[in-house]
Amino acid sequence: MKLFGREPSLWISTIGSLLSLVAGFGLDWLTPGQAALVIVALNALVGVANGLRVRPVSPVVFTYAVGSIAALVAAYGVDVSQSIVGLVNGAVLSILALLLRGNVSPVESLPEAVQVHPGKSPY
């Protein structure tokens, strides 16, 4: 996966160094801790983008994204309780199940002649 022709890790490291530079000036709106959390959120969002491209889609990447974004929001002083994060995670997973369930189907058992048994080669 590439973003604007570059690997995501290059973008994240560049953004991280720029945020660290800005945080180093002692501005009120960005502390070093908040800069680190922005990088965590960016990593989670890039992980979600990558997770969408992999099949089957793993709901876990979305759970990490919700948790890291909640940590970022809390770092800026918004009161985010664990119950709210859990509710949002539950909603995200329900939406994912609704969207992705149509892409998953059960696999029928293979005929006995085709099944591979431990220790026996099918050939």
Rank of each mutant, 00 (worst) to 15 (best):
M1N: 08
K2L: 07
K2C: 01
L3W: 10
F4M: 12
F4W: 03
F4S: 05
G5D: 09
R6N: 05
P8Y: 08
S9F: 02
S9W: 09
L10P: 03
W11P: 02
I12C: 00
S13H: 03
S13E: 14
I15V: 15
I15G: 03
G16P: 00
S17Y: 03
S17P: 00
S17G: 04
L19I: 07
S20M: 04
S20K: 09
L21N: 11
L21C: 04
V22P: 06
A23F: 07
G24N: 09
F25M: 10
G26I: 09
G26H: 06
G26A: 11
D28R: 13
W29K: 10
W29M: 11
P32V: 05
P32C: 04
G33E: 15
G33R: 11
Q34T: 07
Q34R: 15
Q34W: 11
A35R: 09
I39R: 06
V40N: 15
L42K: 05
N43M: 07
N43H: 14
N43W: 14
G47A: 08
A49E: 11
A49P: 07
N50G: 12
N50Q: 13
G51R: 07
G51W: 04
L52W: 07
L52S: 02
R53A: 14
R53F: 12
V54Q: 12
V54S: 05
V54K: 08
V54Y: 07
R55V: 03
P56D: 06
P56S: 10
V57D: 00
S58H: 01
S58W: 01
S58P: 01
P59C: 02
V60K: 04
V61E: 01
F62G: 09
Y64C: 01
A65S: 10
G67A: 12
I69H: 05
A71P: 00
A71M: 13
L72C: 10
L72P: 00
L72I: 07
V73K: 14
V73T: 15
V73C: 08
A74K: 09
A74I: 03
A74F: 01
A75V: 03
A75N: 08
Y76G: 13
G77M: 12
G77Y: 09
G77N: 06
V78M: 10
Q82G: 08
Q82S: 11
S83C: 04
S83F: 01
I84G: 02
V85E: 13
V85H: 08
G86K: 09
G86I: 01
G86D: 13
L87F: 05
L87N: 15
N89Q: 15
G90K: 09
G90I: 06
A91D: 14
A91E: 11
L93A: 12
L96Y: 01
A97L: 00
L100G: 05
R101C: 02
G102K: 04
G102S: 07
N103V: 08
S105C: 01
S109K: 13
S109R: 13
L110W: 11
L110F: 08
E112K: 11
E112L: 14
E112S: 06
A113V: 12
A113H: 04
V114A: 12
Q115T: 12
Q115W: 02
V116E: 14
K120I: 00
S121W: 01
P122M: 10
P122S: 07
Y123Q: 00
